[in-house]
């Protein structure tokens, strides 16, 4: 089981790395469960990854409620733009979230295109990982 998890993480790190390389303005990203617990991150110094994981879950909770209230279906993604940067959350399958931190110069259209693809590729990887976790 450990071997499988290692492979999952290596692949996921590669996806997050590619996101940072291809989209200008991406500072880093975290993968979290919908419960707000951190799974992996590629943030260097800067904000606390556990905080971002919790924020991602809170954002998806708000998105889920909005979708329910407006009868627009399940939550898919949300982008928050603040004065000095961006915080975008994308669903990975049912149980996980990809949260991307961007600076003020983020190419947000490019991020949407790339991050949706990354989330799509992470979904089958993380399903295996989440299935092996008893807490989820």
């Amino acid at each position: 089981m450990n071997d499988k998890a290692d492979k999952t993480f290596t692949a996921a790190y590669a996806e997050m790395e590619s996101l940072r390389q291809t989209v200008s303005g991406v500072v880093g990203s975290v993968v979290a469960g919908v419960d707000g617990l951190l799974i992996i991150h590629d943030l260097g110094s800067g904000p606390e990854p556990h905080d971002l994981a919790a924020l991602a879950a809170a954002t998806s909770g708000l998105g889920r409620q909005t979708g329910l209230a407006l009868r627009q279906g399940a939550f898919r993604e949300s982008t928050i733009r603040s004065h000095k940067g961006y915080f975008s959350v994308y669903t990975i399958g049912e149980a996980a979230l990809l949260a991307v931190l961007g600076n003020d110069g983020l190419n947000v259209a490019r991020l949407h295109i790339e991050a949706r693809a990354v989330a799509g590729r992470l979904a089958p990887l993380l399903d295996i990982h989440i299935a092996s976790q008893s807490r989820l």
């Binding site: 983020l106 190419n107 947000v108 259209a109 490019r110 949407h112 295109i113």
Partner: peptide, 22 residues
Amino acid sequence: SGMTLGVAGGSQELDLAVAAAG
């Protein structure tokens, strides 16, 4: 932002949203 305000034309091979962001 890389977002489009409007597009016209395009094709299967040329996705204008991707082209705009790139």
